[in-house]
C-alpha cells in the first residue's frame, strides 16, 4: 500500500465514520432518554435514501401512505382521549399534526408532478415524510409501555425493525437504488480526489453535531431531554412528561436517520434492507461509548469507519467480520472495567 491508497482509504473511512457518528449519537440519545435500543435506526436511513430515490425516479413515494396510516392511528388514540376528557383544542391539535399534515403531503403529490421538482425539494419532502414517523412510532409502540424493562423495549424494537424491513421491500422493491450527487463538483488535493458528495457528508455531519450540541446546551427543550436522561422522576416533577421527551427524542433520531440516508444515497447503493448493516456499525460505535458517552461514541464511529475502509482493502471478503469483531474486545474491556449496575426503574 502506498500513501495515495492510504489517503483514499482514509477519506472513505472518515466519510463513512461521519455517518456512523451521527447514527451512534442518535442511538446514545434514544437509549439515554427512553431506554429504548433503537434497532430500527437503519430503516430510517433506508427509508430516507429510498424515498428520495423514488421521487428522483418520478414516482410518488409509498412512504407517504405509511405516514398517513400511522397518523390516522395516532389521531384515533390521542384525539379520542382528548375529546373524552373535553379538551377540544388539544384534539384539534392532534388531528392537525397527525391527520391534516400527512393528508396535505399526499395532496401535494396529487397536484404537483414529482418529476418536475428539483433535487433540493425532493430532499426536503423526503425529510418531511420520514421524520414525523419517529414521534408517531414512539406514540404508538413505546409510549404505552414506557416503563417496561429494557428487554421488553428491545423486543419491540426488533419487531419494528423486521416490520419496517418488510414494508420497505413492499414499498421500494428488491432493487438497489442510488441517487445523483448533490453536486458534481470535485477537486484534487494532492493525490486525493475529493468529490462534492464527500464534502456534503462531512460538512452536514459536522454542522449537525454542532447544532445538536447547541440544542442540548443552550435550549430549554434540549436541557429537558438531558434532564430526563439523568433523572426521570425529577424531570417529571418539572412537568417534563416522559411522553414528550420520548417523542422529541424519536423526532431527532428519525431526522438523523433520514438525513444520513439522504446523504449516503449518492455514495452507496441502498437496498430495502441495507440500513440494518449501516446502523449496526453505528451501534458498534455507540457501544464503544458505553451507550452513554457522546464524544466516545463519535470517536468510536470514526474508528469503525477507518477500520472498515482499510479492512476492505486488505481483506475485503472479511470486512464486515473484522468490523463487528471489534465489538468483542470493547465489550470485554467494558465488562471488566465497570461494575455491575442494577437496572433503574
Amino acid at each position: 500500500m502506498d500513501i495515495s491508497i492510504a489517503l483514499i482509504l482514509g477519506q472513505d473511512g472518515i466519510t463513512n465514520g461521519a455517518i456512523y457518528a451521527l447514527l451512534a449519537l442518535a442511538l446514545v440519545l434514544v437509549f439515554a432518554v427512553t431506554r429504548v435500543i433503537f434497532i430500527q435506526q437503519g430503516e430510517f436511513v433506508a427509508y430516507g435514501a429510498l424515498t428520495l430515490a423514488m421521487m428522483q425516479g418520478g414516482s410518488v413515494p409509498a412512504t407517504v401512505w405509511l405516514l398517513l396510516a400511522m397518523g390516522v392511528l395516532v389521531t384515533l388514540f390521542d384525539g379520542a382521549a382528548a375529546l373524552r376528557s373535553g379538551q377540544a383544542r388539544k384534539a384539534l391539535g392532534v388531528a392537525g399534526w397527525n391527520l391534516a399534515y400527512p393528508l396535505a403531503l399526499a395532496g401535494l403529490f396529487a397536484v404537483v408532478p414529482v418529476a418536475s421538482l428539483p433535487l433540493f425539494a425532493h430532499v426536503v419532502l423526503t425529510l418531511a415524510i420520514v421524520v414525523p414517523m419517529g414521534p408517531m412510532m414512539y406514540r404508538l409502540m413505546y409510549q404505552p409501555i414506557a416503563s417496561a424493562p429494557v428487554l421488553i423495549l428491545l423486543i419491540v424494537s426488533v419487531a419494528l425493525h423486521i416490520a419496517m424491513v418488510g414494508l420497505g421491500l413492499l414499498f421500494f422493491g428488491a432493487e438497489g437504488q442510488r441517487t445523483p450527487a448533490f453536486s458534481e463538483a470535485s477537486f484534487d488535493l494532492g493525490p486525493l480526489l475529493i468529490t462534492g458528495q464527500t464534502l456534503w457528508v462531512l460538512v452536514v455531519s459536522a454542522l449537525l453535531i454542532v447544532a445538536l450540541y447547541q440544542f442540548f446546551e443552550r435550549t430549554l427543550y434540549g436541557k429537558a431531554l438531558r434532564a430526563t436522561a439523568i433523572n426521570r422522576v425529577g424531570a417529571q416533577l418539572m412537568g417534563i412528561s416522559p411522553a414528550l421527551a420520548g417523542k422529541l427524542t424519536f423526532l431527532l433520531a428519525a431526522f438523523i436517520g433520514a438525513l444520513s440516508g439522504v446523504l449516503i444515497a449518492p455514495i452507496t447503493t441502498i437496498y430495502y434492507d441495507t440500513g440494518f448493516l449501516i446502523a449496526l456499525k453505528g451501534f458498534v460505535a455507540a457501544i464503544i461509548g458505553g451507550l452513554a458517552s457522546y464524544p466516545l461514541a463519535a470517536l468510536g464511529a470514526l474508528a469503525v469507519g477507518l477500520l472498515e475502509a482499510f479492512a476492505s482493502f486488505w481483506a475485503s471478503a472479511y470486512k464486515e467480520v473484522i468490523v463487528f469483531t471489534l465489538i468483542i474486545p470493547v465489550l470485554l474491556w467494558r465488562s471488566l472495567s465497570t461494575h455491575h449496575v442494577e437496572e433503574e426503574e
Binding site: K223, R226, A227, I230, N231, V233, G234, A235, L237
Partner: peptide, 10 residues
Amino acid sequence: PEKRELFGEM
C-alpha cells in the same frame, strides 16, 4: 421530593 431528585451532572 424527599430524595431531591436533582439533575446531578447539570
